[in-house]
Structures are given as C-alpha cells and as structure tokens.
Amino acid sequence: MTNIKPNQNLPRGEVIPPVIGPDPSLAYGFTPEPVRAPTKPHLFISLPKRRGGKWLRSLRRDVRALRQSRPLTIAMFCLIAVLMLTPIVFTFLYSFFPKGEITTYLGLRNRYDATKWLDVLYAPSVVSLRQYYTILIEEPEYLKLFVNSAMYGGAILLGQTLIIPMTAYALSRFAFRGRDTLFFLVLMLMLLPFQVTMAPSVMTLRALGLLNTPWAIILPSIFSPFYIFLLRQFMVGIPGEIIEAGQMDGTGTLRTFAHVVLPVCRPILGAAAALSFADCWNLVEQPLVYLTDSRLQPLSVMFNKMNEEGQAVAFAGAALYLLPMLLIYIYFQDDILLGVQLSELK
C-alpha cells in the first residue's frame, strides 16, 4: 500500500470523481469509498528492516502484550508457574547445602508432634559442593547408575533414529495391503499399559536369550509404538504436492525420503528425540521386570533405594538426575511444544 505512487495530476485531498459505468454497488453489494489522493506527500524511502534476534523480538512482543493485557491473568499465571517450578528449584537449591545440614534437616521429618514444624530452608550456612563431590568422586555407585541410564537412553535413541522414521514413512506415504490394520495395531499397543504384554514379553525375550541383558531394555523400546504413531501423524500431513513434484523429476522413494520427507520432519524429529529420551530417563517398569542384576539397573529404579542409605547426597543426586532433562527441554522447547500438540489423535 505504501508504495502506491500518488497521482500527480490531482490536487491534494480532493475527491476523485466516481468511475463512469454501471453502479459498482450493484456488482459488489457495497458502495466503495471514494478514493482520495494522499493528503501528505509520499515518502519513497523504505524503512530499515527491524533488527534484533528471535529473543529480542519475542521480548518486544511481550512488552507490547503487557500494555494491553489483563494483570489478574498474569498474576495467576505467575503463581502457577512458580508452583510448577518450585520443586525443581528447591531440589537444585538444596543440592548446594553442606551434607551435615541436609542430614539434620531430613532427620527432622516424620516427627508426629503437633507442636513442631519443619522449617523451610532458604539458604545454606555455607554454599558447598560437597554433595556433588561425594556422588561424583568419592562413591562412584551413583555415577555408574547414571552412566547406565545414559547408555540405555543413547542406545534407544540411536536405534529409534534408524528405525522409526523409516517405519513411519512406510506407514504414511505408501499404499499397501494391511497398512490400516498394522496402523490400528500400533495405535492400540500405544494405548495399553506396559503390564498387558509383560509376561509374554518376558517369555519372548527369554526365548531370544536377551533377558537380563541390556538388550532387553533397549530393543523393545526402539520399536516404541508411540513414536511410530507420532511421526506417522506428521508425515501424513505433508502435502502430497511436495512429493509429487519430486516424482515428476524422477526421484525414487529413497531420495524422496532423504531429501524431502526428513527435512520437512525436522521439528517433529527433535520433539520425538527429546520426549523419547525423557521416557528412557524415566523407565521404571521395564527394568524392574527384565533385569534381575542390580548392576544393570538404570538410575530411575535404583535412585530411591540408594537414597535410603545416602540421604545426605539425595539432593545433589536428584539435581544431577534432572539436569540433562532440563537442558534438553531448554534446547528443544519449541519442538516439544509442537510434538505435544501433534500427539492429539487426528
């Protein structure tokens, strides 16, 4: 609009005479506004593009929103956000307390004495990294479990990266007999709790000789129905034109997969990776059933058993345990939002 060249022949501000011809209101159902010549002389200087990265722009948007916003809603949001983050923040805070202070503090629990309260501690007497030192260097048991968890997570993620996009591609962009039945089965398995197939899974894994090895955890999780479903939903939504355009140029299915489908899927792949890693990090049921050797257990199962002995370092343990997920969340937050929005059944 701003680039319309003003009609130099017209005096400024004057009404342009109506167009000669049939009444335009008959054609469009409304009377057009008489066009006026611009009242100001036009500037033909293009404004410089707004600078600032994504962060600055979102800040600007927030400031603008603040001006026209509802303070009550914001106050409520803040309250809820604080409530949601409090457990995480306090876990990190307490991890910097000296061990003695934590032991004393935790010892004060379970006094069923109606006259006494458990104080909330806000600051340590001395900021100390002693808890971290203990779990990382003095007693390597925690570190071993942590490495177990990371190993399971890494192996599962690697396997999923290889298998799941391919399977989802086959289920979404190919027509073959039995596809819908297969997809329905995947969907159903996604909804059922793990325990439904627990006993026969153990028999199967035993028959394959995998029981009580790390593979018992890794292999089934690689073929997780939920992530097949999630990716398939996204791939179904890719417009057919993009793929047909490739077909016109003679690309085969593999080229289409590698150069068209996967790049389009980038955000959902990020989301799936983050959510899947979170799942592995939080595995409880499978290791309990598939692994009898406690040295193979991941942190998620052993964490609280360990705590019973070493309460003094419980918070550093919990904080370190949360840390990878926190970083992953921060890094993938936009993708995760998208992934969750997509996990609605469509």
Partner: peptide
C-alpha cells in the same frame, strides 16, 4: 496472548520431562 505466556507454557510443560523418582525427596518434605 498475554505477557510472558511463553514462559508460562514452558513452566507448565517442563515437569513432563522430569523423572518422577528424582522428585520423591522434595515431595516427602512437602
């Protein structure tokens, strides 16, 4: 949209990734 709703949404969604067992100790305290 209100101010800071991106932060709010993140604060709401973040616990979804947090392992339950790490939260036990703080839950017992609360």
């Amino acid at each position: 949209r209100v101010a800071g709703d991106g932060f709010f949404r993140n604060a709401l969604l973040m616990p979804y990734l947090m392992p339950s067992s790490a939260m036990l100790i703080i839950w017992l305290l609360m």
